[in-house]
Design a protein around this nucleic acid. Structure first.
Lengths: 194, 194
DNA sequence: GTGTCATATATCGAACTGATATAGTCAATA
DNA sequence: TATTGACTATATCAGTTCGATATATGACAC
């Protein structure tokens, strides 16, 4: 999905600045399953404005660029919904430097392998906490785009959050159950090669 | 991780053509946790050759470009291992058009939501089968880069495959357990909005 | 006082992707 | 028998994306 469509989606929850849209993708509600960087968000907002899909209001600020608050136009909202309805979603895409590195575990010091696996587990436990809709520390709280007017998480977001947590739980559990066997097998593998 | 490093990794398992390296990333052993496209693989191989990290042998072919079989140099192998040892691995990056779309489920026909969830489940069941090291249909068989000289899967690859399968199992199980509740909640949500 | 983070706008060089080009062989289907 | 799609090979390119950078303050921790 291109960044213009992602920005339209980000504005479905209400008005936002470019900076706030970036935060939705880098730290907030979309950060676990989509990616959009400042380098493409600002050009996308400019293009969407030119195409009449969003508008913005500017607020003067002292000592800072004027704040631009973007919102969807009627056309923009319709375009977004039409895009979701009509386009077959692309395959998921996943990149993991740690998993790639672990496929070469036999060539690496066992200490590094252990450290990588521990780092991987920590990242997924952290993600689990960040996804938890009942976590008071999370960015996406009562007024986030995934909530309805009463502050309740919307069904779609709840489902996606639950799925994310199930994946994180499975990851952490697998590591807990299998890490020692891997270390053992690596030691056996290396003594066989000597 | 940049594509030159990924290509070095691909050649750790032995010599390969550019086309075979593409297949490792698009259909084969690395396809579930790294991405490298033809558009960057060939330029990367050219650069690595210029840098003395790989060499190639050319075999003439009729009616086709000459086949270039690449292999790591000693420098290339050392560079790859050094890169794994010294660089802190980047955060995992995950993109899912289906999960992004599902966060807007309240705006979509329930039939589409069901179709997307079913498609998601099918993709992950398929992935589970492709990852399975004991699956005879999978591309990466007895002579793939994840195997030792006896055809046994290497411990690192076994661990990564197991982790991938755990994630797939959790995904499919979560969908089986939670899909109907989501559908029910969406129907309630929509009748509340009417 | 210094360093980091947050809040704001935006640009740009480098990297990457998907499509395209070329051109056959092979298997499945109508 | 003809057509279509997949596979095997090399490579390039236009468009997209990202991370770093620029600018400049305020708030907070050390």
């Amino acid at each position: 999905m291109d960044v213009r469509t992602l920005c339209l989606g980000a504005l479905m929850g209400g008005e936002a600045t470019g900076y706030e849209i970036r935060k939705m993708f880098e730290d907030g509600p979309f950060s676990h399953f989509q990616i959009a960087s400042l380098g493409s968000i600002y050009p996308a907002l400019t293009k969407l404005t030119q195409d009449g899909l969003v508008t913005f209001v500017e607020h003067e600020q002292e000592n800072r660029p004027d704040k631009k608050i973007y919102r969807l136009t009627s056309d923009g909202r319709q375009k977004f919904i039409r895009t979701l309805l009509q386009n077959r979603p692309a395959e998921d895409r996943y990149r993991s430097d740690i998993l790639f590195t672990l496929t070469f575990a036999e060539e690496l010091p066992i200490e590094l392998t252990e450290a990588l696996i521990d780092e991987f587990a920590v990242r997924y436990e952290t993600m689990n906490n960040l996804i938890d809709p009942n976590n008071p520390d999370k960015e996406d709280c009562a007024s986030g785009p995934g909530r309805d007017d009463d502050g309740n998480i919307k069904p779609g977001c709840k489902f996606v959050a639950g799925l994310g947590q199930a994946m994180c739980d499975a990851t952490v559990k697998f590591i807990k159950d299998n890490k020692q066997d891997l270390i053992k097998d690596l030691k056996a593998f290396k003594s066989k090669k000597s």
